[in-house]
Design a protein around this nucleic acid. Structure first.
Lengths: 217, 217, 217, 217
DNA sequence: ACTAACGGGACAGCCCGTTTAT
DNA sequence: ATAAACGGGCTGTCCCGTTAGT
């Protein structure tokens, strides 16, 4: 019907289900979420659900691999990939997180929530969540490398190490915010992290001339 | 039989139960743990369990307030309190965590596990967990202040900020380790943190002469 | 298959469940009845049961409002409503109860059983049971009024008072029968009640001529 | 210590327990009462309880045979036995019940409560409760006989029949009061019963002269 | 592709009664 | 005689998943 050939109803329902499930799982966790909650949130029925997903486990796997991965892509990876200076882009994202209010923080980070709950309990889901962490850290490390190549970042730093450090601090900061219902610790921890990362940037005078322009600084 | 006549059987059983429950909850989380699991782990029966605790919720509250708080005290707070140079003591603890193997990391941090799972779901338990985070950060900040007063730490740093930053990095690092079943990211993240903290120490020549000697360096 | 396409399977199962539950509750009472007993009696499973009723309380409410009210309607109210002389109809019903054997009496009166057990314990269910008593007494009082208007019953009597008196005696008589497993006290008590009610009837010579004829005398 | 040689502590505790149990059973019924409720009401512990009674069943049996029977004796049988005119005494009791408020009626009649709940479910307890009913009706019938012998009651009436009728009406009236939380139906039903019984009394002129004087009239 | 209805097992908590130790 | 602690089974409810019927 539409230009994009309607994506087939089937796929639309599946994605709808996935999105609802992501929201519910994000807040309540895997064991704290019942299939009835997912089904009720989607407005469909159980039969419809089990037509699209064979089990709760499979749903969680799809949520991780598709919905959560999608958010990771949208909120982090695209910006890192497309930025002239990924280091600056990363700092920009952290700065924006510092402005979150208590209610934004209450749900925490979907990836970390699932990681904490499932890692020791379900090997398959653990690996899927871990793959997201890896992709995330890789994207940051790659971004750092590009920033270095373009002269925006000091050469000395071990990009993988700084990337891991950044994600660790970020996740820990979000954890503290979620636990305290208070943005203050997030600001303190991320503030320190931002200072740390700022110290890795080059001053304009240290940068060689370049054709393109950085987008986020 | 003993001098103190069995030191109240009641208390012994309760503590036994608490310890078992802590272990099971640590690994499986709150919703992933059934009372039957706790009871089986303790070797007692349900009747006995519910004689000591009125509900699963109350058990979790007691585990947080007593068992987990006890571990926090033993593994962190005592060392920070008794050290001549708490900053050095903290670095020492982080260094030791860097030597953990994958299997040590698999359970993650009990405080963070519970915080992640319960914060959005149970307000009472969230507050109890948050109190532990607060106590932890306070103890580190207080330690930093003492290190500064004794000349072991540079004066400029905002102790509360650095303490929050340290816990955030630590928790995030443990999360990555738990999720990846691999000590490598822990080493990377904590290594960076240790570097950061080392930069806050004074060199011997900067320190005024003192009577006592630092214990952990 | 049928004209009305299975008249909603749902309603059929629900009514089946309701009927079974009424039987079990009648004999064993609310607290003496377990959900397993109801489920076993119905031949269904717990999952099926809780699809139709959200709780034991809701089941009891539905049993009172639907199944027990249905029996009341069938055994009493229709006869009172449709009789040319409701006073005579009532006496007829009491006469038939006098012929019950011990085993008929063993279960007692469903309304009274539930009233006795639940009144002091569950306000919601108490009100539902009480509504049945009210409907019952009202129907008898209305019948008496019609009997008076048609000349079958003496004018002096306070219809509401006699109706309440009749139900009280009836319930008490059934209680004695249930407790003693013996129809004798039922015969004695209801016999006296019947005598009392007979004394309220008019003799044919006292009655004005009427078009219709009384159905139950 | 006291004149009555303290009745042995053992017996006192047992009676205390019995009295508490009667109160709790009266309101909550047999299945609605847990041993913990009884124990809590008595202020003792489970161990103490099970020293005096081997089982819940045995407790209920003792409550019926002793505590409830005691109340029956005190509130009814003594008055019937000692009255010059037992018929008048009975009417007096019914008159007093008519003045009860809603809250007095809420618990209903202990004998009837237990009879309704247990008759179909526990043969042993049913027989014990039934024995109370029998004793009660017998006492009234005997009283009627004495009233007749002394000229206070018309000779024609079948005393056993009237006694059964009276108890049935009384129990039914109390049931209605309990179920409705309203004294009105009790007043209506018992009022009719009182009228009925009054009609069985002799007028002074019908009475032969006698030596003694009637106590309750 | 989706709904209504159902199956059966698991879970938290309660309950009756026992044991151990005074 | 009484208290503290415990054993084990049962109850009401929920939950994951399946099936019959469009």
């Amino acid at each position: 019907m539409s230009a994009e050939p309607s994506l087939r109803k089937r796929e639309r329902t599946r994605l709808e289900l996935l999105e609802c499930a992501k929201e519910v799982l994000w807040v309540n966790g895997y064991f704290g979420t019942s299939m009835d909650m997912v089904v009720a949130a989607s407005g469909l029925t159980k039969g419809a659900f089990y037509y699209h997903f064979p089990s709760k486990h499979a749903l969680a796997a799809a949520v991780i691999d598709e919905a959560v991965a999608g958010e990771l892509e949208q909120r982090w990876l695209v910006h890192l990939r497309e930025a002239e200076n990924p280091l600056a882009a990363l700092i920009g994202i952290f700065r924006r997180v510092c402005t979150f209010t208590g209610s934004d923080l209450r749900r925490g980070c979907a990836i970390n929530n699932l990681a904490q709950e499932l890692s020791a309990v379900d090997e398959d889901l653990r690996q899927r969540v871990d793959a997201l962490f890896t992709r995330w850290i890789d994207a940051i490390a790659d971004g750092f490398t590009r920033s270095q190549q373009r002269g925006y970042m000091k050469r000395g730093a071990d990009v993988r190490r700084v990337a891991t450090f950044s994600i660790a601090c970020f996740e820990g900061a979000i954890s503290l915010g979620k636990s305290s219902h208070d943005p203050a610790p997030v600001g303190l921890a991320l503030g320190s992290l931002i200072d740390y990362l700022e110290a890795l940037r080059t001053t304009p005078s240290q940068r060689p001339a370049r054709a393109g322009k950085e987008k986020l600084s």
